[in-house]
Design a protein around this nucleic acid. Structure first.
Lengths: 334, 334
DNA sequence: ATACCTCATGTAATCCATTACATTTATGAA
DNA sequence: TTCATAAATGTAATGGATTACATGAGGTAT
């Protein structure tokens, strides 16, 4: 494989000149540049980025940590991250942590070992202190999920406000007994969506009732089971707010198995607006997060840090969208 | 940031000795090793992998090219690739090509620039010649989709046999008018599934009828439209074979909108067994590919190439599984 | 005691590109 | 013509690790 030395020899110039041509740095005589380009072409030379990266102490590589790529929620975000990244010459390393603390730690070694110029956390497993430490040493951004106390920038939506809005929608439809399919995880989105649910009820004079709360922990199967339990009660809820679309699908399935019609007998709302929310039968009322944009903004924020243009952590909240579909609103049915 | 020189100074040994401790290469006196480890600990030293990689001419990084991570079909495969990769000290770079030829080419520069030790194609855009060239110069494997003529190993299932089997299942249920929702893409899976459909009909004395073929090109929306057209015919099919689960969902939706019951009025079968196939209502009959295993085998094959243990391309076919669910079989209904 | 070998460790070359600094050549002003 | 300055190019140091080869200490066989 040809190296810069071979090119220099072929073009009868020094390696410095070749490097200058490669990087359009200082001026090179047109004739010389031509000769170098010819030599590059002739030898089919490709710069070895390992050498360049070592010298420049950068890798143009970004670490993106997420629980699992199989969750369709993340795909749009990843596209945003990639697009902005590529536009700036960065490549993305997508890594599944499986929500495992150790695995996340292992991946972070790539930062410490200089194999990555920065990191975007989609759902950090580290605690606030550890996150802050990473944030103080390396460019880092949290996207979607975040730890409030951590000294690391984040991009997200206002989960509290969005959940409040969707529960209010159910209340406006006349529902008074509204169940919740939530999660025991203590990620910020769970906590805020729970709280908003409670608060929306109370603000409308509806007593919060722990019996109407089930836990699905973001899994279809467990949501199905939890919803079944809720719906088999004598005083079953007439509406269910699931804090993710996948769990909403579980809830709808549970309703169907209990021979209840959605939304006539029980209305169901989800959260996230994954592709399947509009493919399901009935189509699911949900909160659309600006996924692509969130990815873009997160990456832009990271790039700023890499360039040293950001002196203190930023917290960016983007707009969401309540999308009303068949699963809650009778008259939207065909 | 501490370097190996700092550690050597601190431990009062040479850099060679530090390196030996780091790599457990040749013998080092226990006392010396102890001193080195202490220095490493004290300075919180982490080897700079850029230096190591340059010297060793390897990156322990694998490029995985797929159309888009948002397709849930790929997630299981990626897990297999990751698991085997990590077990062997490799990291994965997942890259979305968006089925774009240029983008795929761009990513392949990472191989040429030595930033990646090998590549796994999930659905190559390159032509056979270009693939063969990559395969001759770098470790490479095709997984799931592949170009038959390319001189690059591949791991897949027998798409032809699987499709033949699922169409036979529909025929056994008594269907004679069976529609196809396929794709105009000329990837091997489309072609083979189409051919098998045709052949299965003919082998059972059913005339192949182009009027019963619609094209969805792997998209929900287009499959919905194509299925609507098929189902609005006077001589509408009583069964539909969609060559992907997502398109099967489109077909089911089309049936529902036409007030046809699935499977009573029209049976629908898919392909891939994505998670949503068993979450949909009705649950979808489909072919389960051994996704995780395919990922594992692909990665193992790649590692063999990297180690130079593979002299010629291998073609590995794994077993699939026909899973019969509600969407085709009346008596499996609750 | 001599020659030879082994083990532990050190010295310095190496991987490949970038870049600070040095050198040469050309240009223009005085 | 001479000196100062700018432009083009070259030389060599640099980034951080690995590793071939060199060295010296200690052990063994004769």
């Amino acid at each position: 494989m040809a190296t810069i030395v071979d090119v220099a020899r072929e073009a009868e110039v020094s390696v410095a000149t070749v490097s200058r041509v490669l990087n359009n740095s200082t001026s090179v005589l047109p004739k010389t540049r031509e000769a170098v380009l010819e030599a590059i072409e002739k030898l089919n030379y490709k710069p070895n980025l390992l050498g360049r990266n070592l010298r420049r102490s950068q890798t143009k590589m970004i670490l993106v940590l997420l629980p699992t790529v199989s969750n369709p929620f993340y795909s749009g975000i990843v596209k945003g991250i990639e697009d902005i990244g590529h536009k700036n010459g960065y490549n993305i390393m997508l890594c599944n942590t499986n929500s495992d603390y150790q695995r996340e730690k292992t991946y972070l070694e790539l930062l410490k070992n200089k194999l990555s110029d920065g990191v975007i956390f989609m759902a950090p497993e580290l605690n606030e202190e550890e996150l802050s430490e990473i944030g103080s040493k390396y460019p880092a951004v949290q996207c979607c999920e975040y730890k409030e106390g951590a000294c690391v920038s984040h991009v997200s939506i206002d989960n509290y406000k969005a959940a409040y809005e969707i529960v209010s929608h159910l209340i406006e439809l006349g529902h008074r007994r509204i169940g919740l399919i939530g999660s025991k995880s203590n990620c910020i989105s769970s906590i805020q969506r729970h709280e908003a649910y409670k608060r929306a009820l109370e603000d409308n004079g509806i007593q919060f009732d722990t019996d109407l709360v089930g836990y699905g922990n973001y899994s279809y199967k467990r949501a199905l089971k939890a919803a079944k339990a809720l719906l088999s009660r004598d005083d079953r809820p007439t509406a269910i707010f699931a804090i993710s679309d996948i769990m909403a699908i579980g809830a709808i399935r549970a309703a169907k198995e209990a021979r209840l019609r959605v939304p006539h007998d029980v209305a169901v709302a989800g959260f996230d607006n994954i592709d399947f929310a509009s493919m399901y039968d009935p189509m699911i009322t949900t909160i659309a997060q600006p996924r692509y944009e969130m990815g873009c903004v997160a990456m832009e924020l990271l790039l700023k840090q890499i360039k040293g243009e950001l002196d203190e952590p930023k917290s960016i909240m983007l707009d969401y969208n309540l999308i009303i579909r068949e699963s809650t609103k009778v008259d939207t049915l065909k």
